[in-house]
Design a protein around this nucleic acid. Structure first.
Lengths: 232, 232
DNA sequence: CCATATCATCTTCCATGGAAGCTGCAATGG
DNA sequence: CCATTGCAGCTTCCATGGAAGATGATATGG
């Protein structure tokens, strides 16, 4: 029973995160918040010191972040925090366009009850976005809409890909908030996607979702480029 | 000078692959060839013995393969070689549809000289496929066509995603060769994609590429399912 | 003064051992 | 006979030290 009690001390059902997990999350957060500016070169030793572990968990966390494209491990030299160019942002948006477009089409192909239920949830987020008082809240509802779109497609690989590109884009998002693009144009576009889903028309849904993200991309990329942001 | 001589012994200009790299490649190859049947549970110790390294490189290679979805690391238990269900194959094909469709559209949007050059190369592969004597050669030309389509899109993230899903699908491909689907139907579909690229019509290119892969998926998945292949 | 060689110092890469967790079996108590 | 407990043997996880490579400063020869 002592065993059971001990197990219970650490939040039942919640697996205790390993040191690698914690180092990964902390390192990634630091990168996204630009506490480590892009282009900086770090050593495993100093990161180990900063995060309170030994070098091994840091190394393994760095490997994961390298897979995601946030850092590059230079053999025998150190860990380089990657810089994203506007071209990178363009590529990332292209991935988003491809995946979300297909996700919307997939949802539109679902049996009517299911797709209507999803449409309702999407509509709720859109309404929340429309009603939001400030940019922050609007942005949050917008993100919820897009996350839901991908999750509801039922393809776990879509979600996984989006998670990767989102973490890459996260740093750029920080800048975006300051630039405050006219997010209200998104509302009718979201509604167009929802309408296509309700109608059960995958082709229209595909085109609508692609057009929406394409429009956002064409607004964002020049904006970032114009501000002379060579990297993030 | 002895030092220099020693450096030269290992093929100048070729970066020596690290032990992690070699373990990764060897482990992955073994999985794809089904030398490790799906569902088997392995320990780092025995893999280290098999591949002639210590446990550390094996562990790091396993982490990479886990990112790619080929294995799962069970904490304190071992390394599980993942089994792919027909549903997984469906998901993978959906990713391929989304990415290749967008890639085709992107190519169709390129300036005329560039897209004609790409179209010519794609046409060459298709002709090679049509002329091929046996299934093996035809299959090779088909793969070359699709690889080229993605590479030529100029989005490095597309290529990276395709690399991941291809390695996941590689094991299923082995079975596919035995099932010998009617690959000749692909030729006119490839030509339709090429025509859309030549015409510079991204919408048609998108639809044509999606239709092609969708048709293949709808042929393959039931075929795999009918043969009672619960996993690969 | 410049070019080249050497070395001190940094880095990662990899091997290895101890710690902690999981699992199944055997022993024990009802 | 069944349930529970404890343990033995497995596993990964993480820390650490030595080896090998990269780099920049310094010394040395022209």
């Amino acid at each position: 029973m002592a065993r059971v009690a001990r197990r219970r001390t650490m939040q039942a059902g919640e697996a205790r995160p390993s040191l690698v997990e914690r180092a990964y999350a902390a390192f990634k957060a630091a990168i996204v918040r630009a506490e480590f500016p892009p282009g900086i070169q770090l050593s495993a030793q100093e990161l180990a010191l900063r995060f309170g572990t030994s070098r091994t968990p840091i190394h393994e966390a760095s490997l994961r972040l390298q897979e995601e494209g946030l850092v590059r491990i230079l053999p025998k030299k150190g860990i380089l925090v990657c810089a994203l160019s506007p071209e990178d942002i363009r590529e990332i948006y292209e991935v988003i366009i491809a995946i979300e477009g297909d996700a919307a089409a997939r949802i539109a192909r679902l049996p009517e009850p299911e797709r209507l239920a999803i449409a309702e949830m999407l509509d709720a987020e859109t309404a929340r976005m429309e009603a939001a008082a400030d940019f922050e809240a609007r942005s949050l509802a917008d993100m919820a809409f897009h996350t839901l779109l991908v999750e509801a497609s039922g393809n776990s690989r879509f979600a996984s890909i989006m998670k990767t590109v989102n973490s890459q884009a996260a740093r750029a998002q920080v800048f975006m908030v300051q630039l405050r693009p006219n997010i209200e144009r998104s509302v009718p576009e979201h509604r167009a996607i929802i309408a296509a889903i309700c109608a059960g028309d995958p082709d229209i849904a595909l085109v609508a979702a692609r057009a929406h993200r394409g429009r956002v991309r064409d607004e964002i990329v020049p904006l970032l480029a114009r501000f002379g942001l060579r990297h993030f």
